[in-house]
Each structure stands twice: as C-alpha cells, then as structure tokens.
Simulated scan of single mutants.
Amino acid sequence: MNGEHSADLSCMLREPTPEKGPVLPVAAVTRAMAYDPAAWLAAFARLALADTLGMLALGVALEAHGQNLLVALGGDGLPYRLIYRDLADVRISPARLARNGIEPPPVSARLLSDDPAVLHAKLFGSLVGTTFGSLIALFGRRDRVVERRLWAIVAAAAREASGALPDTRDVRADREALFAERIPVKAHLVARLDGAPPGDSWTGLPNFLSVRQGS
C-alpha cells in the first residue's frame, strides 16, 4: 500500500507436505497417539528445541505454538520431522542476521526487532509456555510426579540443543532466558478485554526448565 508492505493485503499459500505418513498440528495430538508419552515427548523436544533455538541464534524467533507446528510421525509413532507454518507473526532481528552474514528480508517493520526480550517472549512463550505446557498437561493427567519427570525430559533436550550451538553473545543471552526462573507467556485474557492495548500482552509464569523449578 503506497509502496509499503501491508498485512491487510497479504495472503498465504499453504502447500501439502511431502511426507507419506501422518502429519498433524501438535495441538491435535492426543494421548492415545503416544504409546510411550516419555519417548514421544523426548523425540519431539529434541526436534523442536534444536530447530527453534538454531533459528533464534541466527535471528528469527518463531511463534512455535501447537497450531503453527506440524509434526510428522514415523512408523513407530514417534516424531521424526517438524514443519512450521504461518510466518505472519514471527520476529526477526536484523542485527542478529547481520552478525551471521544474512541480509534482512524486505518484510513489514512490525516483524522486526533487535530486542532480546521481544525475541525470547515470542519463541519461549509459545514453545515452552504453550506447546510443552499443553503436551505435559495432556500426558501427565494431573499427576505432578509424572509432570515433573516429563519436564525433566524437556529440560535435558533444551540443555543439549542449547549446548550444541556456537558460544556467541546471542546464544548466551538466549540460554540465560531459556533457563530463567520465570518464562513469558501470552496474556490471552488481557488481549480479549475491551480497550486492551494492540499487539501482544505478556505475563510471567514459573519456568519448569530452570534448575530451581525443576529440582
């Protein structure tokens, strides 16, 4: 519009995935699909954390909630590939991209931010606070002992994925935020109130990936 990018005039093309086996949004996963919930979660956590933390280190924070993440299941029922859809609300850091030798894309200014807090909230709030939280609530069935064990599996995958990345200033900042005592999550109720401010609203919850919360 007037030579500028406008989300109001955008459209999205979703192509079918090339996978031959089952592919579904993570939000559609049921407990019956996971014959061994711990093994299922471990496989998913390794994929999700390696991919999203790697993207974040480069400069792209995905909104990795259960509707945007598709999981491809193998013959054993375990996740073996993730597919991300809906790029409309990612956050991109031009400074991080530049530090990694990548030219920033010509996208709406709304998607651009070099603020680590914005990048961390976008990814960790959706992936840890929403996706992992929902899966563990599903698999744990309100058994707090089981839930703690499942969170320990995710924490181990997070340490492995984070530790495999180059030890840059950005990665160290990401690691500190990922294992902080509190994690940002979207305040969905606030967003639905009359007169709510535009854009994302956030609150903080205990982070079960932190050493103190997981102990």
Rank of each mutant, 00 (worst) to 15 (best):
residue 193 L to A: 14
residue 195 G to I: 03
residue 204 G to C: 14
residue 168 T to I: 08
residue 190 V to F: 10
residue 185 V to L: 04
residue 193 L to W: 12
residue 170 D to R: 10
residue 181 E to Q: 11
residue 164 A to C: 10
residue 188 H to G: 13
residue 168 T to G: 06
residue 193 L to I: 09
residue 215 S to C: 09
residue 162 S to G: 14
residue 183 I to Q: 06
residue 174 D to K: 03
residue 200 D to I: 11
residue 190 V to K: 15
residue 184 P to F: 02
residue 173 A to N: 07
residue 197 P to E: 13
residue 162 S to N: 09
residue 169 R to L: 15
residue 176 E to F: 01
residue 157 A to Y: 00
residue 165 L to T: 00
residue 171 V to T: 07
residue 165 L to W: 07
residue 204 G to S: 13
residue 194 D to F: 06
residue 192 R to D: 12
residue 189 L to S: 08
residue 198 P to S: 05
residue 180 A to S: 12
residue 190 V to Q: 13
residue 170 D to Q: 12
residue 195 G to H: 10
residue 181 E to A: 13
residue 186 K to N: 06
residue 192 R to I: 10
residue 158 A to Y: 00
residue 188 H to F: 15
residue 204 G to Q: 09
residue 162 S to R: 01
residue 158 A to I: 00
residue 192 R to N: 15
residue 206 P to I: 02
residue 214 G to H: 12
residue 190 V to M: 11
residue 190 V to T: 12
residue 158 A to C: 05
residue 209 L to H: 01
residue 167 D to Q: 11
residue 179 F to I: 03
residue 189 L to M: 09
residue 176 E to S: 12
residue 206 P to V: 01
residue 185 V to H: 02
residue 173 A to G: 09
residue 200 D to H: 11
residue 208 F to T: 03
residue 193 L to E: 14
residue 176 E to Y: 03
residue 203 T to H: 11
residue 158 A to H: 00
residue 196 A to K: 08
residue 164 A to I: 06
residue 198 P to W: 03
residue 164 A to L: 08
residue 182 R to Y: 13
residue 212 R to V: 07
residue 209 L to Q: 00
residue 193 L to T: 12
residue 202 W to H: 03
residue 193 L to Q: 15
residue 180 A to W: 00
residue 172 R to Y: 02
residue 161 A to I: 01
residue 163 G to S: 06
residue 175 R to Q: 09
residue 173 A to C: 09
residue 212 R to I: 01
residue 206 P to C: 06
residue 171 V to L: 02
residue 173 A to M: 07
residue 213 Q to K: 13
residue 188 H to E: 15
residue 169 R to E: 15
residue 191 A to S: 13
residue 167 D to E: 14
residue 171 V to Q: 05
residue 187 A to F: 11
residue 203 T to K: 08
residue 170 D to C: 10
residue 205 L to N: 13
residue 178 L to Q: 01
residue 189 L to K: 05
residue 191 A to I: 11
residue 163 G to Y: 01
residue 162 S to A: 14
residue 159 R to S: 05
residue 180 A to P: 04
residue 181 E to D: 15
residue 180 A to E: 02
residue 193 L to H: 15
residue 196 A to G: 13
residue 195 G to C: 05
residue 164 A to Q: 12
residue 170 D to F: 14
residue 213 Q to Y: 10
residue 208 F to C: 08
residue 197 P to D: 11
residue 173 A to I: 02
residue 188 H to P: 07
residue 211 V to G: 15
residue 211 V to L: 11
residue 207 N to Q: 04
residue 174 D to I: 07
residue 178 L to R: 00
residue 163 G to L: 04
residue 175 R to D: 05
residue 179 F to C: 06
residue 160 E to T: 10
residue 199 G to D: 05
residue 205 L to D: 11
residue 177 A to L: 04
residue 159 R to V: 03
residue 167 D to T: 06
residue 163 G to W: 01
residue 200 D to E: 15
residue 172 R to D: 07
residue 180 A to K: 01
residue 171 V to H: 04
residue 176 E to L: 08
